[in-house]
Nucleic acid binder design. Structure first.
Length: 669
DNA sequence: GCGGATCAC
DNA sequence: TATGGTGATCCGC
């Protein structure tokens, strides 16, 4: 392959020999709990055989070559260091190590809890026949968690299912079900709260607890508290967990892994104990040191254990940034965070989807529309507005690209997201991609919407932000729709039919932005998933627990409102959530059940317009809009008329699909 | 501010 | 047949 000629780095892995699989560095054989008796050589061989020749594999090879290049460069720099250089960095490093040592805090006792094979354990709980059988939660593409029976075969998280099945033909696959895991996670957190009300949730299945106070109050050893907590978790959930106790979070995490599953390990708050512990600890066990960092530190500096970080500290300061070198040294000293962190807010929100690679622009556009809508919905749920939009693409050859814009104003609506996402994507065309993602960051310090605070616009148009018109039966709040709906803020842009659907990226036609689905409003109704395998993995990370996050006051001042239509749109964003007419399983209309395959793009477009027209007609016949400014009222009437005529066309065809040539002929506009 | 990369779960 | 999704951070421009 061009540019990837073997970069011999002398790590003894010899590429071309009779064991080619040894040079394929996967993450699957690094010692994880439950993998002790595994024949790593065999796993490595199977993974290699299954991957060899694939696009994914080729990309991994490119990445590996790139890292080896980097290693070679570092080695050259290393060799070039003069005595004077080294003397200098020796001083720098030593001084810093003394400072770090002085900052050591042995006053706190931290406990890290980690549920054992969490998803798999939950699934076994709800289906006991899985007990004792090798099982994995996930799909043929990706495994999230494997139970311990499966791990004996080398099956593990992040491994694609089809490889896992090769390793273990008996393997049972269970689809992922976040709702279930969230439920059990909540149960565990109830227990955690009793030991530290301010515990830090790392994810659904792990948490950090500062048990200093509990130990003091109850005059108990940390070991006893850990034991009791684990018993409590088991009692509450029927699930086992492991715990690690140490003077800081970094070490506590390492410790929880030591006697996994269903075990615990206590590292006492004693400097010597910590130093001894760290002296033989492989660096890969440290959170933040992954496959690549481990590789570099080993190949360039000969570092394998945390202790060696200190021995090589001068070189680390010479070749890495100060903050990186400092992190490495603190690891060598066994230091870690001991304070309870301040409340942290999320810094970005994103979504991405993988699909079979395509360069079909209509299809790509459709994906973009779906992502923009999902993202806008998520943002509105949290009242977020951001001004940086990032498009992520993964090409058919697994190369990842990101393209970003930072805007003058904050955005949150799907229309705005889509508008800018389209520009970013268009600049990359033509391209064959297998993944598209969107991310919004650079948030407005304030929440964009706060139902309790009336902005000018939602006051004018709705009178009451909590009473949105609802198309779907509102199961959550019966009071809200008892009388005539008070808002009918369907943006004209959302109803526009895109005429030249074969090139969705050429720009905007009748209006600002073309749009493929009609968007209705609802309030308090659980969203409908767009497809069966759609995992809205509402990652329960630390900040979701953050106290005070709900008390954040929304302010309108920060949002740049420049014209009337923007005003309308802000109103729509700030007072309600959106619901789209969805294609269930990407196939079936969520409103009438009619089936239309994804490839029928124009037909679908027409179909969603049909439903919009239907809705508008219904509402027109029974709603009188109070206190709506005349401008927006007339706009809405205009749309209604337009959509109604469309609906008549459709009804002439008795609601059947329109023949495809109709869409070609329709170009007259 | 952007884009690539790494990392964790 | 087939290698995920979300969020954070760091580095070098």
């Amino acid at each position: 392959m061009e540019g990837t000629e073997a970069v011999t780095n002398g790590d003894g892995d010899g590429d071309g020999g009779d064991r080619p699989w040894q040079s394929y560095h996967t993450v699957y054989t690094t010692g994880k709990a439950g993998m002790e008796g595994v024949d790593k050589e065999k796993v490595q061989r199977v993974v290699y055989e299954m991957s060899k020749g694939s696009k994914y594999f080729e990309n991994e090879e490119r990445k590996e070559a790139f890292i080896n290049q980097k290693i070679d460069n570092l080695r050259i720099q290393y060799a070039k260091l003069t005595q004077a250089d080294l003397a200098h960095y020796h001083k720098v490093a030593d001084r810093r190590i003394v400072e770090l040592e002085a900052s050591r805090d042995l006053s706190r006792i931290w406990l890290h809890v980690d549920m054992d094979a969490f998803y798999a354990a939950v699934e076994t709980l709800s289906n006991p026949t899985l007990q004792g059988k090798p099982m994995a939660v996930g799909s043929m593409s990706m495994i999230s968690t494997a139970n311990y029976e499966a791990r004996k075969f080398g099956v593990r998280a992040a491994m694609p299912g089809f490889i896992a099945r090769k390793l273990c033909p008996e393997l049972i696959f269970v689809p992922i079900d976040f709702k279930k895991y969230t439920h059990y996670s909540d149960l565990t957190r109830k227990v955690f709260r009793m030991y530290d009300p301010n515990f830090i949730a790392g994810s659904l299945d792990e948490a950090y607890l500062d048990i200093t106070e509990v130990c003091k109050e109850r005059n108990a050893k940390s070991e006893e508290i850990a034991q009791e907590l684990r018993a409590g978790v088991y009692e509450e959930t029927g699930l086992t967990c492991s715990a690690g106790v140490a003077p800081n979070r970094l070490l506590a995490k390492v410790c929880s892994d030591i006697n996994k599953p269903n075990g615990q390990y206590v590292l006492p708050n004693d400097r010597m104990a910590v130093m001894t512990f760290v002296s033989s600890l492989p660096i890969r066990k440290i959170g933040g040191i992954g496959k690549v960092t481990e590789h570099i530190l080993k190949e360039v500096f000969g570092i394998n254990t945390c202790e060696q970080m200190l021995e090589k500290s001068s070189y680390l300061y010479a070749l890495f940034s100060q903050s990186t070198a400092e992190f490495f040294c603190s690891v060598g000293l066994g230091l870690g965070q001991t304070g309870s962190p301040q409340v942290r807010f999320r810094k970005s929100i994103s979504n991405e989807r993988t699909f079979s690679a395509t360069e079909d622009e209509v299809l790509l556009h459709k994906k973009l529309v779906e992502l923009a809508e999902m993202l806008a919905t998520d943002m509105q749920k949290e009242g977020l507005c951001g001004r940086t939009l990032t498009l992520k693409l993964k090409t058919a050859s697994f190369e990842v690209r990101t393209r970003a814009v930072t805007l003058q104003q904050y955005i949150s609506s799907s229309v705005d997201i889509l508008k800018h996402a389209k520009k970013l994507l268009k600049a990359e065309l033509p391209i064959s991609v297998r993944l598209i993602g969107l991310r919004v960051s650079h948030f407005n310090g304030d929440r964009c919407s706060d139902p309790t605070q009336k902005t000018i616009t939602n006051f004018i148009t709705t009178g009451d932000a909590n009473r949105n018109c609802s198309y779907f039966p509102d199961v959550a709040d019966h009071d809200s729709v008892s009388d005539a709906e008070t808002s009918l803020s369907i943006d004209s842009r959302q109803t526009t039919i895109q005429l030249d659907w074969r090139d969705p990226f050429v720009g905007n036609y009748l209006s600002d932005v073309d749009y493929q689905s009609c968007v209705f409003q609802k309030n308090g109704v659980e969203e409908v998933k767009t497809s069966s395998n759609d995992v809205t993995s509402s990652h329960q990370s630390g900040f979701t627990e953050a106290p005070g996050s709900t008390s954040f006051q929304g302010q309108f001042e920060g949002i740049n409102v420049n014209n009337e239509s923007k005003l309308l749109e802000d109103e729509r964003n700030s007072c309600s959530q959106e619901t789209t007419m969805l294609w269930l399983n990407d196939y079936k209309c969520s409103l009438c059940g009619i089936e239309l395959p994804p490839s029928f793009v124009p037909e679908r477009l027409e179909h969603s317009d049909f439903h919009l027209a239907e809705k508008l007609q219904k509402e027109e016949s029974r709603i009188h809009l109070p206190s709506v400014p005349s401008r927006s009222r007339s706009q809405k009437d205009g749309i209604a008329r337009q959509s109604k005529s469309k609906r008549q066309k459709l009804s002439q065809k008795e609601g059947k699909y329109t023949p495809i040539d109709y869409f070609f002929a329709k170009k007259e506009s």
